[in-house]
Design a protein around this nucleic acid. Structure first.
Lengths: 330, 330
DNA sequence: CTGAAAGCGCTTACAG
DNA sequence: CTGAAAGCGCTTACAG
């Protein structure tokens, strides 16, 4: 049907081995190389990657497993990962797990069947805790969420420090009653909660934290309820972009004025956060660096399987905006 | 290294053919099936998809080629495509072209090397015009942008009607001086421009349109310039979500009040559009339906290669918000 | 530098 | 229902 390396060899009057060497930039005389290249161009030949992968026992494929590509954080990271991968002549297989451990297990099995070179993985806390990386057969770089203690490479935000930074910012702006909203499936949510608790405790303030499913809808419901209570906080920190979005919607729905009645702050400098009135105070994650660092660590691990496990911890950047303006000031 | 079908066969005391039949749900006696399944479970065997693809001459892979996954329209479409694909036991290869015809050509070649079952493609106008789909060797479903006239299946928005709908909405709100900002690389921009021109002409109004590169930054620059001119329009339509975002930033930067000094409207009901103050009037594209329809058409084409070419044209939905409130009203 | 041959891990007629 | 055998399209030692 489609032309194979055999057809090209016949056309050029050489062996298939020589055609293969031309394709792989092996040692071939200029004369034969020219004949083979002419035959390739003339026949419209395209190498079959499945055959090449099978024979060379190298898929040159990386799996990227995230909860949902529609989360702008993962969108941006994936774009970066794909760019680096294609530049290295590798392919990316993207998987959305919706924070569902069953889907995670299914996709990990798929990765084994694809014989991927490696995987970049934002795992749920459940999977991260139970996963035996060494049994997988390929290296894993965790992103966003920590993996099982020091069992594999990871690129992480300094979540506790970033959450503490938000608390300190709100304290400096004069807020004392600060609530926190955290995702209940990821270690990220847990770490940000820890930083939140530590900063408040150090200031001698009580801790009000709630955990929800990591979706805007769940956050909106939770915050709507929260605001109805007499002891509702005067400031609120949301532990990621989706939760912050839900919080904003709840606040709008309740007719609460930001920041006069409730200050808001959160994670992820998504494009919408600077367009609300007032703009949202956030900790920006270095998304491009995270994607690049993850692919970089994976490539180094492939080159050097026995190198020691590394965690790269990146700092967030506070972007103060109107949503956390000083209480009582214009 | 890794266990193969041969190891499983030896373990179960059957031939490799029988193992293959168990894997493929072929006819096997209950007894042998049980022995094979035990051997698979015991050995941790995982089928090698490259080998299966090579031998069966079927990749069960679809290519998804878009300009940039970071554009929320394509993010949402891709999520839908992937969900349908995985449900059908197929895999998706995602490619970002940045509206660059060279990258488009490179990725199409890659798709041939992957022996993909088919491709879903949002092509630049340049590539759409010159592309010989029949020479590719796999079926193509165009999305968002029209392909070469009736040469292949397509899922499209009724762009002209949607643009006209926006114009008519602004007219009904009392606006007479209406400018349009369009992307200069896609047929989508051209079609929306055509609908824009038609609606204004029918109303006997002059046409003010500008074309820019399809990025928020380019739109911001263009609108900033435009607003400085004495004959700047009183209302502005932006032809996609990125351009609308750029327009909003320019408007903010210039201190122009929406809608009192300038009404805004555009395409794509991205999450930020309802969070600005005022909210943005937009035509919402049925992103989920577009993704599903594209995968659906591709699957039908694969089942039935000779079926007549079809174009599915979906209607947009007007979402009126404050950015186009009646001129002079509260 | 070049070619003949083996083999990667599967599936699929073909016999039985 | 089952197995022996061929072959998908490549790459890679091995000789020369």
């Amino acid at each position: 049907m489609t032309t194979s390396i055999k057809d090209v060899a016949r056309l050029a009057g050489v062996s298939v081995a020589t055609v293969s060497r031309v394709l792989g930039n092996g040692p071939v005389s200029p004369e034969l190389r020219a004949r083979v290249e002419a035959a390739i161009a003339g026949s419209g030949y395209r190498p079959n990657l499945s055959a090449r992968r099978l024979r060379s026992q190298s898929s040159r494929t990386v799996g990227l497993i995230v909860s949902d590509i529609c989360n702008p954080f993962f969108t941006a990271v994936s774009r970066e990962v794909e760019d680096v991968a294609y530049r290295e002549g590798m392919r990316v297989i993207l998987c959305n797990t919706d924070e569902n451990p069953d889907k995670e297990a299914m996709y990990l099995r798929l990765m084994q069947e694809e014989r991927v070179s490696g995987v970049i993985f934002a795992a749920t806390r459940e999977t991260a805790a139970r996963l035996d990386v060494s049994a997988l057969g390929f290296p894993v770089v965790m992103i966003d969420r920590a993996g099982p203690a020091s069992a594999c490479d990871a690129v992480l935000l300094d979540n506790a420090a970033a959450a503490a930074q938000l608390v300190e910012h709100l304290l400096a702006q004069g807020y004392r009653s600060i609530g926190g909203l955290f995702g209940n499936t990821s270690s990220t949510g847990a770490e940000r909660h820890a930083g939140f608790v530590a900063a408040l405790s150090q200031a001698g303030l009580p801790v009000e934290a709630r955990f929800v499913a990591p979706s805007a809808a769940a956050a909106e419901r939770e915050v709507a309820n929260w605001l109805r209570q007499p002891d509702a906080p005067r400031a609120l920190i949301a532990s990621n972009g989706l939760l912050l979005l839900g919080a904003v919607k709840a606040v709008r729905g309740a007719g609460v004025v930001v920041p006069e009645q409730l200050a808001l702050a959160g994670f992820d400098n998504d494009s919408w956060t600077e367009l609300t009135e007032p703009g949202m105070t956030v900790v920006e994650q270095p998304v491009a660096e995270i994607g690049q660092a993850a692919m970089g660590m994976l490539l180094e691990r492939l080159r050097q399987p026995e190198r020691p496990v590394r965690k790269v911890v990146l700092a967030g950047r506070l972007v103060p905006r109107g949503s956390s303006r000083r209480a009582g000031s214009a």
